[in-house]
Design a protein around this nucleic acid. Structure first.
Length: 411
RNA sequence: GGGCGGUUACCCAAGUGGCCAACGGGGGCUGACUGUAAAUCAGCUGGCAUAAGCCUACGGCGGUUCGAAUCCGUCACCGCCCA
């Protein structure tokens, strides 16, 4: 059911948060979007709006949800969302988001990942109104002739202008020929899907524009390209991505999610407000002003952010327990309710139990941690790594702030 | 096909015969402090060993040497230039 809104309101909503890196381009796209929306209203034909996701890892993270949220907005206005699984493009490796060529995946990995991807995506998207497409369905059948035909629309110079290619070119890093094809493939997708609108992160702009160019060459009306800012990872600087290990997975348990949000640097909060919450621009502005003036405490604001993120993926009932766990564990330095259990033989040196329980990787590392006062047994800092375990009752082993195990003497 | 340069720990990168388990930076970990797992500061960051010490490691293999990440040979891979 399309929500009744004027075209003006719709454009304003859909363009909110769109960043094209160039005001003129953004204006032009906004104008094209308006035309499309008007056409759609007049003809009653919904717009075909697509976004592609390369299944390079088994899990989606909240970085992926930025474009999904935008897709969802289109859905709510009655348009057709198309979720494209890059089952073919993932094999090529997208050069956009890295300074280095990405390792290529096998077909099997890609298909396994695709399965979990789509399931997770429906936490955001309306399953009923989403068309899921796998791009190997059409791309794997493309002939060399067609490839050359498509390639004839582009020059090498156009590619070299791209920041991440020009950088690598300048620093003598390899630029693989197959990487050039990535943009062509995305363009091909756009044409195949007869897309009216394509969404992507700002770094994808080049690819989206390639789609426009190809559609035009094929006698179609070029799609509206809309890009959203990139979400930074938990480190606060780099793009959130599996390969840098700075992700917050949308399938992670509430406590984990809450804690990870709390671990982002204060400086990254604004990025998160805008990209991964349901807050309106007014609410965001209120928080930012409060932070700037000192009226709001950064920690409290971040907790608010953490609650919001947990609520989105786990529902409102998961929020309180997740926050309570955080307060207990981190702010009060308490112990978690659940911790893995490890059975030891009486007389086992503590250091061995640390390794055996999987809390540390080697005895050398365990020794170092003891030296650094990072190991506690029943709350007491351990001084002697060779201490022999022999407790009647279960003992709580703590390594650092976050790793716990319950040690139980074996019979 | 020819010439030149390169390959060092999770990443970047220094080291050109012994003082090298290998400078520095990033990341990660621990601690202190705090406002949180933020910021800041300090320490740690191959394995085994209570310790002395031992083992493994500077692309692979082989050699020179009392001794090699460092020299030589060869193979593999990468980059640049020429064709």
């Amino acid at each position: 059911m399309a929500i009744e809104q004027s075209i003006d309101q719709q454009v304003a909503l859909l363009m909110q948060g769109i960043e094209m890196g160039d005001e003129k381009l953004k204006e032009a796209m906004g104008k094209e979007l308006r035309e499309r929306l008007e056409d759609s209203q007049n003809t009653g034909v919904p717009l075909r709006v697509y976004c592609g996701y390369d299944p390079t890892s088994p899990d989606l993270h909240i970085g992926h949800t930025v474009t999904m949220r935008k897709l969802r907005q289109f859905q709510e206005l009655g348009h057709q969302a198309i979720f494209v699984v890059g089952s073919f493009t993932a094999l090529v490796g997208d050069p956009s988001d890295k300074d280095k060529a990405r390792p290529r995946l096998t077909k099997e990995q890609v298909m396994a990942n695709a399965k979990t991807y789509t399931d997770q995506a429906f936490k955001i998207l309306d399953r009923e109104k989403t068309e899921v497409r796998f791009n190997d369905r059409w791309l794997s059948g493309v002939t060399l002739e067609q490839v050359i035909e498509v390639a004839s629309n582009f020059t090498v110079q156009q590619f070299l202008v791209r920041d991440n290619f020009s950088k690598r070119y300048a620093s003598n890093e390899p630029i693989w020929l197959h990487e050039f094809f990535y943009a062509l493939l995305q363009g091909y997708d756009a044409a195949e899907l007869r897309a009216d609108v394509q969404l992507g992160a700002t770094e994808q702009l080049f690819n989206l524009l390639a789609g426009r160019k190809l559609q035009e060459a094929m006698g179609m009306k070029p799609q509206v390209a809309l890009t959203v800012p990139v979400l930074v990872g938990t480190d606060g600087h780099l793009r959130m991505s599996k390969s840098t290990g700075n992700t917050i997975g949308i399938d992670e348990p509430p406590e984990e999610m809450y804690g990870k949000v709390m671990s982002i640097p204060d400086s990254a909060m604004s990025n998160y407000f805008r990209l991964v919450t349901r807050w309106t621009p007014d609410e965001v502005a209120f928080l930012e002003e409060g932070l700037a003036s000192g009226d709001l405490h950064p920690r409290d604001v971040k907790m608010r952010l953490a609650r919001e993120v947990v609520e989105i993926y786990h529902g409102v009932e998961a929020v309180e327990p997740a926050e309570a766990a955080f307060v207990h564990l981190v702010q009060e330095g308490g112990q978690p309710e659940d911790m893995p259990e490890h059975a030891y033989q009486a007389g086992t040196p503590l250091i061995d139990a640390m390794v055996d329980s999987g809390l540390v990787e080697s005895k050398s590392q365990a020794r170092r941690l003891v030296d650094q006062n990072g190991v506690r047994l029943n709350g007491e800092v351990v001084e002697d790594p060779n201490f022999n375990l022999d407790f009647q009752e279960a003992a709580v082993l703590q390594v650092g702030k976050r790793r716990f195990a319950r040690l139980v003497r074996a019979q």
